[in-house]
Each structure stands twice: as C-alpha cells, then as structure tokens.
C-alpha cells in the first residue's frame, strides 16, 4: 500500500467510524433520529447548529448512549492495538490479551480494588493485574529460552482460568444481591455501566499508549524474523520487548478497568486488518485501532438491542463472531510447527 492509498484508506475509515458512532447512538428503545443526535452533540460541544433537542432525548444521547458508544470504541481500539503488538513481539498469531490471560489478570486486579478496597486507583490495579498475568504466562510457557505459540496459549489458558476463578471468588466473598451479574460483566465484558469517566480513562490510555506504539512501529517491524534478526537490524531486543509488553499491559489494564475482559477483539482484528494494511506497523496500528473501535461499537449495539429489553454482556457477541475466525486461523495454518 503506498502513501496516498494509505492516507485515503485511513481517512475513509475514520469517516466510517464517525458514522458508526452516530448511528449506534440513534439505536435503542427510545427512537432518536440522526439529526437529533448531531444537534445534541453539537450543542454540548458548543458548535453551531447545536441545541433545540428535547431535554429527555438530549440526556439519553449525552448521558447514556454517547459515553457507552465512545467507551466501546476506545476499548475496541485499545484491544486491537494490544493484539497487534503482542502478535508481533511474541511472533504468535494466536497472541491476544484475552487468550494469554492479561484481561483476566486485569479483571482480578480491578475487582480486588473495588471490593477489597486496596489502595490503588482502578486502572493502576488492572495494569498491575495484567502485567502479573503476562509475566506469569510467559515464564510458564518458556522452555530453554524459547516460547512456542501453542505453549503460550496453554499457559495463558491456565493463568486466565486462575484469575477468573480469583475474580469470581472475590465477588462472592463480598456477596451482594447482584453478584452474578457483576461476575458476568467482569468475566465476559460489558460497557453497560459506561460513564464519561470511563470514556476519559479509556481514551487517555488509548491516546498515550497508542501514540507510543505508533512511534515504535519500526521496532515492531524489525521483529518479523525473530529476536536475532531484530538485534542484527540494530534493535535492543530485550529493552524493546519489555517496554512494549509493559505498554500492552497498561493499555489492556485501562480497557479492562472500564469494560471487564472482552475476548477476541485483540485476536481477530489484527489478522483482518493486516490483509488490508500489509505488515508495516506504521499503517497497521492506526487502521487496526479504527477497525477495532468500529467492531466493538457494532458488537455492543447488537448486545444491547438484539434481545431487548434483556442485554447481553458484549463478550458473548465478540465470542460468537471471534471463535469461528479463531477456528479458521487454526485450520488455515500451513505448518504445524507452532503448536
């Protein structure tokens, strides 16, 4: 993909994302038109053409639906970026924050803070949980200095199960009436409780870590033939790898602290977007972020409308879409060497 085609693709996909956001806000039990949505948003941003929307409609748009849609978008973008970086750094097509246990670790960290009242801010605790899970997964998977993709996924599974059990235990221990729903939301992921605070946390993490990752795209490119090749291309392999993995843990932690652990976004989006953007991270990362945002907003819109008035945790929808892609990835692999 040359420079001009990339610029055009990125611009088109950003416009498409804006449209997805606006349309997602119109969808719901209370019928709200696209015009009302734009007028309400414009009014709050102080743009011309804003205002003149009934008070109830305005507060549904601004207080309920928009924060939820934007949170879903930022979380989807963050998880897709995390997946791209993990797949490149570990050279593992199955690497993603959910399969390798980071999301569950982050959930456990977040829940521990919420319920036990440990003195950390929520995203910081989720970050520490994600980082601990990542370190545990990679050290279990490592045999004689190398980590095969299959072993990484198996170790991730073990860590994810442990952290999920820990999360459920902590919630049960402090049981209240709605514990089941709370457990489900952390384990399967949900943005139903999104507020402007969640938008702020997710968007800030996305902007800061995402910028850092884009600036590291050359280094990510250099890992395509492995650690030795990266070193021979002038990369400080160990420092770079740990910095990037810490960045992924930070990003995943922030996302999980507002949404619980949502699976498969980080796994499938990188593969789908790589087909379009090519292997270069400078182009892959921004496009994956936009696609991840659009994907999770769409999934969450389905989750809250298909069985209306009941609402599904969004992780159920991403699993229904993601698992078939996961199976196709396993089946489509030509070599058996990674298992």
């Amino acid at each position: 993909m040359n420079r001009r085609r990339f610029a055009l693709t990125l611009a088109t996909s950003v416009v498409a994302l804006a449209l997805v956001v606006a349309i997602a806000v119109t969808i719901g039990p209370a019928g709200i038109s696209l015009a009302e949505v734009t007028r309400s948003i414009a009014g709050h941003l102080g743009l011309p053409g804003g205002g003149g929307v009934p008070l109830l409609t305005d507060s549904i748009v601004w207080q309920l639906r928009l924060p939820r849609v934007l949170t879903a978008g930022a979380v989807g973008a963050g998880l897709a970026l995390s997946g791209v970086v993990m797949q490149s750094i570990t050279r593992n097509p199955l690497a993603d924050p959910y399969l390798l246990g980071l999301s569950s670790g982050a959930s456990l960290g977040a829940v521990a803070v919420l319920i036990l009242g440990v003195g950390f801010a929520l995203p910081a605790a989720a970050f520490l949980g994600a980082l601990a899970a990542l370190v545990a997964t990679l050290s279990i998977a490592r045999v004689g200095g190398t980590i095969t993709p299959g072993r990484a996924v198996l170790s991730g599974l073990a860590i994810a199960q442990l952290a999920a059990a820990g999360t459920s235990f902590v919630i049960f221990w402090s049981a209240k009436g709605d514990s089941y729903r709370e457990i489900l939301n952390w384990l399967l992921g949900s943005v139903a409780g999104a507020s402007w605070t969640s938008v702020g946390i997710a968007a800030a993490a996305l902007a800061i870590v995402g910028t850092g990752l884009v600036l590291a795209s050359t280094r990510l490119d250099a890992f395509v033939f492995g650690d030795t090749a990266a070193a021979s291309l002038g990369i400080n392999v160990n420092a770079t790898r740990w910095a990037l993995l810490a960045a992924v843990a930070l990003l995943t932690g922030a996302m999980v602290s507002v949404s619980g652990s949502i699976g498969f976004v980080g796994l499938i989006l990188p593969h789908l977007v790589r087909g379009l953007a090519g292997p270069g991270h400078l182009r892959l990362l921004p496009l994956a972020a936009v696609a991840g945002a659009a994907f999770l907003i769409t999934a969450d819109t389905l989750a809250r409308t298909v069985f209306d008035p009941r609402e599904l945790p969004v992780g159920i929808v991403t699993a229904f879409i993601g698992v078939p892609v996961f199976i196709a990835l396993i089946k489509g692999r030509k070599s058996a060497s990674w298992a």
């Binding site: 795209s217 050359t218 490119d221 250099a222 090519g278 292997p279």
Partner: peptide
C-alpha cells in the same frame, strides 16, 4: 532510517 518512521512504511 529514522528510528520512528523507518519500517515497512
């Protein structure tokens, strides 16, 4: 190439 923008891009 530039450390920042030098990869496949």
């Amino acid at each position: 190439r530039s450390r920042v923008l030098g990869g496949f891009g």
